[in-house]
Design a protein around this nucleic acid. Structure first.
Length: 638
RNA sequence: GCCCUUGUAGCUCAGCUGGUAGAGCAAUUGAUUUGUAAUCAAUAGGUCCGCGGUUCGAAUCCGUGCGGGGGCACCA
């Protein structure tokens, strides 16, 4: 006599055991049609699952994220089924639902081609059309293993082995085809509907381990309605339009070339943007009490050995041997150099906290497959700083850093910032009481900031806990930028000390922090966030003056001169092209403001303004324009 | 680094099954003097990514190296 409690608090009573489907039917006919799976006391089950005891249930439909996952999980099973039907002998590994879709990993000698994907998709539609019922069977563990061994499904054998001992080994049949799976699954192959699409093939290591063999992964996406599928595809298209590599070319900001993979060739405009960010940061950091320094790019091997980089980071380091056989490393981080600046001369507790910033260009030999435009490069400029302080200054300094980061992100248009806090890893140096202290200090800073944060247990650096600052962009993507780490190790390794009140020498605590992280990366993010339409103040070229015809060249030149004199970066376009052409060209290269000058403007000493992505025309007195825009052309803090 | 894929003019791309290359835009020159997203014409422009091989003959086929892209792994 199970008593079934529903999400709205109502209870349903049944005389005998009851299935999820029957419960849904009892609630309403429409719900029974929409029902995909069921949650029983928080556990997801098939609709055919028989409930015998009292419990709380929720019927899951495609409106629930679990329902969406179930659809995708079913879709990937159907894909695997299609693959094995078309390409007999293909072995199957795993196939989960993921964000926005699903994948399945296969083992097969020949690579899947785009035509194969089409074939597979077609076959999937046939399978959906046949609408075969799903059936769950529980197999005895040994039977499952022997069976999969017999049919040569090596990966399934391994998967059976990794199912925890207290869990049932279940197999789902979709018609004749079956797969080892925990479930739950929809009641039949027709349930997933028509709105799926296979998107790409790629390689993936078995169990995500690069020591293992590489499998072929087919990705796809699946949605409950045509609209949602189309929206998703549109979203992908939108993201592609924002690709900073494409926009960077169109806006003439930078390029890459073969001679130096992963290193940026900055063009005039890109470099202007780069420098603007730096001078903005300089002003901010100056205000916050930082002293800017600069340290060598190339340092002797011995320093890196002392700091521990040679051992821990060596695989990512460029080295250089001189004609006289000395070995130097090109710095992958700024910290050792900065500590050496601290070490020069005697420091007193009165000097603390000592905040040293450095726009240091670092080089890291990243794996070739990791490179990605500006977002993952081999040479980048960090807006780095190291704060030397005493232990009791940690919290306050962390808080200062957090506030500075938030302020800067806000100025650049990012309001949504999430923190990721990582505490002590298993492999670490330093006493536990010091860790207690630094973790407490960092957490305290996070709490005061009142920001949303997640905890990554045991993911801290070997020398201390850390916070990572993740910002969310205009289309909802997360980017990790800033970082703040408490380091109780490096200062000691490199012999840093200060004279305390009592005259004794003490080792300072060092906070590593970067706000943007890497200027290169941040610029990539900025471009994508704004889809190239950068805020006026940060645009490398803020206005272009366009004469309606060459008759007005002189006036246009004069306007341009005045604009530049007011600190706005501007160019005048005197080329022999018509107005339409010039407007198109400069709009495509994302110039925020175009100023049109013709007879009307000359006569009234005005300009006609056309702003990027607006067709509205606005006629304005030239002096008024200058007055209004010269302030806007500067960084917010200046 | 690994799997797949890709590399033709400054850019975007065409070039079927092998017969040493083509378009549009950009550039240059000329005409045009234009009022809010491409004016017209002419000219010039190429180690078809590098190296090696097969072939009478390679942009095309094979091998290899390098670069790009999508993933995986890495990084954070």
């Amino acid at each position: 006599m199970p008593k079934i409690k529903l999400p709205d608090g109502k209870n349903l009573h049944f005389k005998n055991k009851v299935t999820g489907f029957q419960i849904a039917e009892k609630i309403s006919k429409s719900l029974s049609k929409q029902a995909l799976i069921i949650s029983v006391d928080g556990e997801l089950k098939d609709l055919s699952f028989e409930i015998e005891k009292d419990c709380t249930v929720k019927i899951i439909t495609s409106k629930d994220s679990e329902g969406l996952d179930a659809i995708r999980h079913d879709t990937t099973h159907i894909m695997a089924m299609a693959v094995q039907e078309i390409f007999p002998g293909t072995k199957i590994a795993i196939g989960p639902a993921i964000k926005d879709g699903f994948y399945y990993d296969f083992s097969r000698k020949e690579p899947f081609t785009p035509e194969d994907l089409e074939k597979i998709e077609k076959k999937m539609r046939e399978i959906v059309e046949m609408d075969k019922p799903t059936r769950r069977e529980v197999w005895e563990r040994k039977r499952a293993k022997d069976h999969y061994k017999k049919i040569g499904e090596d990966y399934k054998v391994q998967l059976v082995d990794s199912i925890p001992g207290d869990e049932e080994v279940s197999v789902y049949y979709h018609g004749k085809w079956y797969d080892l799976c925990r479930g739950p699954h929809l009641t039949s192959t027709g349930k997933i509907g028509k709105f799926f699409k296979l998107t790409k093939v790629s390689g993936a290591y078995w169990r995500g381990d690069s020591k293992n063999e590489m499998l072929q992964r087919i990705y796809g996406t699946s949605w409950p309605s045509k609209q949602e599928l189309e929206d998703y595809l549109k979203r992908i298209e939108e993201a592609e339009k924002r690709d900073h590599r494409k926009l960077g070319k169109e806006m003439d900001l930078f390029h890459f070339r073969e001679e130096s993979p992963g290193s940026v060739f900055w063009h005039e405009k890109g470099w202007n943007l780069f420098q603007k960010l730096i001078s903005y940061m300089r002003a901010k950091q100056d205000e916050a009490g930082y002293k800017e320094i600069n340290t060598p790019e190339i340092l002797d091997r011995s320093l890196w050995e002392k700091s521990g980089h040679w051992e821990k980071f060596g695989a990512n380091m460029y080295t250089s041997t001189t004609p006289d056989e000395k070995v130097f490393a090109i710095k992958p981080m700024n910290c050792p150099g900065c500590v050496q600046v601290f070490n020069q001369g005697l420091k007193s507790y009165r000097d603390l906290p000592l905040k040293m910033s450095e726009f240091g260009k670092v080089h890291r030999y990243e794996p070739s497959g990791a490179l990605h435009g500006l977002l993952r490069v081999r040479a980048f400029t960090q807006d780095d700083a190291h704060i030397f302080c005493s232990e009791d200054q940690i919290t306050e300094e962390c808080l200062n850093v957090t506030n500075l980061i938030l302020e800067i992100y806000r100025d650049l248009g990012f309001e949504n910032v999430i923190l990721k806090y990582s505490d002590r890893p298993d492999l670490r140096v330093g006493d536990d009481n010091v860790w207690d202290k630094s973790e407490r200090a960092l957490l305290e800073a996070i709490k005061v900031s009142k920001l949303e944060y997640s905890v990554n247990k045991g993911e801290g650096a070997f020398y201390g806990p850390k916070i990572e600052f993740v910002l969310r962009d205009a289309i909802g993507r997360d980017w990790q930028c800033g970082t703040l780490q408490v380091d109780l190790n490096l200062p000691a390794r490199l012999g840093a000390s200060f004279v305390d009140k009592d005259g004794s020498k003490k080792v300072p605590v060092m906070l590593h922090r970067a706000l943007f992280g890497s200027l290169e990366r941040f610029i990539g993010i900025l471009i994508e966030n704004y889809a190239g339409k950068l805020p006026f103040w940060i645009s490398p070229l803020q206005t272009v003056v366009i004469p309606v015809s060459s008759e007005f060249d002189n006036y246009a030149k004069e306007v341009n001169k005045k604009i530049k004199k007011n600190g706005i970066s501007s160019e005048v376009d005197l080329k022999n092209h018509n107005l339409n052409y010039k407007i198109r060209e400069h709009s495509l290269s994302k110039i925020p403001i175009l100023l049109i000058c013709g007879k009307k403007e000359v006569d009234s000493n005005t300009v006609t303004i056309r702003r990027l992505s607006s067709e509205k025309q606005e006629n304005m007195d030239l002096n008024l324009f200058l007055k209004k825009h010269s302030a806007l052309s500067k960084a917010p803090s200046n």
